[in-house]
Design a protein around this nucleic acid. Sequence first.
DNA 1: TCGATTTACCTTGATATCAAGTTATCCGGG
DNA 2: CCCGGATAACTTGATATCAAGGTAAATCGA
Lengths: 160, 160
Amino acid sequence: MDHVDKILAQWQQQRPDLNVAPMGTLGRLKRLNHVLMRAMEKTWAHYGLNESSFDVLATLRREGAPYALSPSDLMASTMVTSGTMTHRLQQLEKAGLIERVKNPDDGRGFLISLSGKGFALIDEAVAAHTETQARLVNGLSDKQRSQLDDLLKRLLAGLE
Amino acid sequence: MDHVDKILAQWQQQRPDLNVAPMGTLGRLKRLNHVLMRAMEKTWAHYGLNESSFDVLATLRREGAPYALSPSDLMASTMVTSGTMTHRLQQLEKAGLIERVKNPDDGRGFLISLSGKGFALIDEAVAAHTETQARLVNGLSDKQRSQLDDLLKRLLAGLE
DNA sequence: TCGATTTACCTTGATATCAAGTTATCCGGG
DNA sequence: CCCGGATAACTTGATATCAAGGTAAATCGA
């Protein structure tokens, strides 16, 4: 009987006509996401980062050498709008974690790359981050985690 | 090989020392949450609501008669700060969906209750919402959805 | 080759949120 | 009874985000 179960019981009482089973699942998903984000933010903060900045730096890092992408590529990878990405890149540039050069092949665009400092920082931060994540899924066995993975993937596949 | 798998493959290539399996699970959870929210927002918008306002009205509605809670109770239920709740309640009051009365038993506090209009609106909106949610979990069988439910619950239990 | 369309990115304006600080009220120990 | 600490809710200031609009450059069709 967790928090979500109590909500479902209330609805059952008030509106027995509703099918609330999906609400339970989606409610837990939302709540879990919230709790997980809160936990992961602590790790990011330890490196002076937040979800946004970590997201951008990690996207550049995992791309491999020369660790560079256009703002448009970053927008697509991180699912944010152009205004948001502009803002994020300004912050990161000011912090000296990325560098911005005009794209020689396209006068409209830029290439954003990791600075040396940005590379060093994200390489450390991502290691700590994966450790945090491992701790967060500790409540499940490997098999259960893998099962969860499969169900999430299946659900996501039908929606994207 | 979905979007998340590609990310994991990139990390595997770049940082084979990292254990990225948890990242896959948590990444899908985040992405799924994002996609689901987007979808549910459409239903809410159909009733002139958004996640925030729906959240408050639904919390009051499922509470049962007399459909009233203090701002503090609402804060606890919806996991937002006091400033945020103040703002939400202002909007809802302006829209005539809630009413605010001083708590007779506590001079510091208020009681927020659904107006007739608010009750009628949320009662319709929540029915549409549960239908949307049922559609969103269509990609899973009942058994799979229930399995997912169980795993999310287990994971959540270890963290809250 | 040239005009129309598309694309890349930035800018603007509005909104939602949070953290921290504030004020009024309540409550419990002396 | 009163005073100090706790609590309820609002206010303030900062920030992140989005949607919509703008500008410059690229591309495509005739």
